[in-house]
Amino acid sequence: MGWQTWELAGRSLTSRLLLGSGGVSSAAVLSECIEQSGTGVVTVSMRRAGASATSGLLPAIQESGVEVLPNTAGCRTAREAVLTAQLAREALQTDWVKLEVVADDRTLLPDVLELIDAAEQLVDDGFRVLPYTTDDLVVARRLQDLGCAAVMPLGSPIGSGLGIRNPHAIELICDEIDVPVVLDAGLGTASDAALAMELGCSAVLLATAVTRAEQPALMAAAMRDAVAAGHAALLAGRIPKSTLARASSPTTGLVGT
């Protein structure tokens, strides 16, 4: 049921919503979104630092009592991603990494060859690797087989809000993959998150759908409810689809018969 815990990369989590901090307007808004979303995990990126460029982001995340999940966003090669992950481990004292290796700025689509190379190196180096990948089952299976702790296929391009463009591909990955499948990227609104869960995803990771909504905290609450509803619907077992009607009222004892 929705309140039962599940396992992700060695941690026990209650919420099946992972929240990205990308696009958030302030630490205060992030705190509010974390609270309203009910999430147990928040992602951050790693960027070159100036001495005075302290941000309130980490205190906000730590005060919320959630796990921090560093990503390798912006990396184009396995080499860059591995170094970024190692820097994140040193800075944040975590062996978790959301592995992103993208091909270009226009699509931000995963470069799966570099991704698999980086994942192998990081698994060997003791990381718990959560790779952002395409909705290709064969790639997902490779990532699982080399030791990734989850696979995180996209619904549609990062930040696009286009939702899940190929539900069949996501459902196939959920059916065939044993590690948790986390739908990552492209979600726009609550029904997208519910669909991901109904298709069988273990969880949903989203950022801009919440942080760039007109009212981020309200969308965070909507996403919390949608993820819980979608997961409950999956467990409940939906009725089969039919091309014709099937009466729900008794078909006997009708007036005039």
């Binding site: 951050v44 990126s45 790693m46 460029a53 820097l87 990062i158």
Partner: peptide, 29 residues
Amino acid sequence: GAVVPSSAWAKTAVQPGAEVEIVRPAQGG
């Protein structure tokens, strides 16, 4: 191109021509 753990900062020399990167967490999805 290699992480220097904080335990090694005091004994790791910065040589002429060295490339140093210092990173912090920032917002990100």
